[in-house]
């Protein structure tokens, strides 16, 4: 099943809409609570990223019996240095956004910690697409 949600740049109050909706669905599918938690964290961080850093975008979730694919697409302005963006504590967020409690530089690192697969496609002055996958069964290392 597919769920798609639009995200508006700057609308922090609605960041979390996608994650709560997906959370409700996954509960009804009997997905283990710790996995739901990981999905929710990754999704919520992605929502905040789009709202805080982009010109707007959307999240599309595809749920199968094996797991969930999440694709986050925005309309730019792109990430110039993905490796730098992936390091904890690095942030390009403005002072205003930090004052609102966002922009601690934990977004992408936090997403990486909680998903089983992550792919980021982006470059300066172009849209960003982040694709993630979370499996519904526990992997060995956990």
């Amino acid at each position: 099943m597919d769920v798609s949600i639009e995200l508006t740049a700057g609308d922090f109050s609605r960041a979390g809409t996608a994650s709560s909706r997906i959370k409700k669905i996954l509960k009804q599918l009997n997905v283990p609570p710790d996995i739901i938690k990981r999905v929710v964290i990754a999704l919520y961080e992605s929502e905040v990223n789009v709202v805080a850093h982009s010109y707007g975008g959307n999240v599309t979730c595809t749920i199968t019996s094996e797991g969930i694919d999440i694709v986050v697409q925005d309309q730019g302005p792109g990430i110039p240095d993905i490796d730098l963006a992936m390091s904890e504590g690095y942030s390009t967020a403005s002072k205003e956004i930090r004052e609102m409690g966002f922009g601690a530089g934990m977004g992408l690192p936090n997403i990486r910690k909680n998903v089983d697969a992550l792919e980021i496609n982006s470059s300066e002055n172009s849209p960003t697409t982040i694709s993630m996958h979370v499996k519904f069964t526990h992997t060995q290392e956990e």
Partner: peptide, 10 residues
């Protein structure tokens, strides 16, 4: 939970 089997639940 809608169904114990996840495919059915979906």
């Amino acid at each position: 939970v809608l169904d114990d089997d996840i495919s059915e639940a979906l």
